[in-house]
Simulated assay, not measured.
Amino acid sequence: MPIMRAAYTSSFNAEDPLAALTVGERPEPTHPESDWVTVRVRASSLNHHDLWSLRGVGLSADQLPMILGCDAAGVDPDGNEVVVFPVVPDRADPRGMSILSEHFQGTLAESVAVPRANLVPKPAELSFTDVACLPTAWLTAYRMLTTKGRVDEAEAVLVQGAGGGVATAAVRLGVALGKRVYATSRDAGKRERIAALGATAVEPGARLPERVGVVIETVGAATFEHSLKSAAAGARIVVSGATSGHEPVLNLRRVFAMQLEILGTSMGTPEELAELLALCVRRDIRPVVDEVVPFSRVANAFARLASGDVFGKVVVDHTA
């Protein structure tokens, strides 16, 4: 059986997820359905989902070993340069779908198998490093702003907890779409980098000079009260994460008095990914990249993500 290099988990470690990471050889991917194809991966990027997998969240022991990674770009069997949409049909999942590295092997390998319908053409104007950042974090941010947040109806946006992949993408996209963007961070260095992206950087909980039409919320309990207080009448608070806790105190009187919409979302669709790619070309947007790491040092990429000091995406170059 042909083998390939891959980064995977064959055990779980809730306290020290990096200790559960293995870099070694795995079999080349197989096709569970006739419409699946193999993509030779050129670049991938990490998400906190990968660290949660190493901790054992969302995986069971009988699924191991599992190749990690949701995001990838590469070359399909016909030689086309493609971006991989990471959500695949899954009859075994109650949702009817799953993300690569949940029930099907992930992208942190030389090759990944996906349905052909999950392949989105890569624009020539964007590098493999650029597009490898987009399918999870950037697509989530794009959907939060556009499909869910209806940002075209707003003048100003608040992004909570900028620095991570989704929040930083939301800052970059919001500015590119011509909106006044406010973004919070506890870290003074990250606030400087947020300002360099064209946003107004503020400390968490700070009073804004105006109320906003869209709030991008990935932090949860620690920031949700501030999100409510910062929202203008009729604003949309769009939630795709809760890194500080998922049970915030919620002032329902403010919700109904201000006629606020609280909307949940995750990921997006292949069509939205194609829209995002086109927007990046049209507006000359490039993802915020914290570091590009060769696959030979993929363990360093995981350590960088786990450090908490990341600003933007950590990308793995599979050609190095």
Rank of each mutant, 00 (worst) to 15 (best):
A233N: 06
E261T: 05
Y182T: 13
L208S: 01
G205Q: 13
E225P: 12
G234I: 06
P248A: 03
A196F: 15
A170F: 09
E203N: 08
L197R: 08
L208Y: 04
R193K: 15
P209E: 11
V171K: 06
R236L: 00
I216S: 00
G220S: 09
F224E: 05
L173C: 04
F256P: 01
Y182D: 09
R180K: 15
R254W: 03
A169L: 12
V239D: 00
G178A: 10
L273F: 03
R186M: 14
T265R: 03
A196N: 10
I262S: 00
V219H: 02
E271R: 08
D284M: 02
A201M: 11
R282W: 14
G198T: 10
G213P: 01
V219P: 09
A167Q: 09
G205A: 13
C280L: 03
E272C: 05
P248T: 00
E210C: 09
D187F: 08
R282N: 10
T184D: 06
L173G: 09
S244G: 07
L228H: 05
Q160S: 13
A233V: 11
R211I: 02
E192S: 15
V171G: 09
K229M: 13
A162W: 07
A278H: 08
G241N: 07
I216A: 02
S227I: 04
E247L: 10
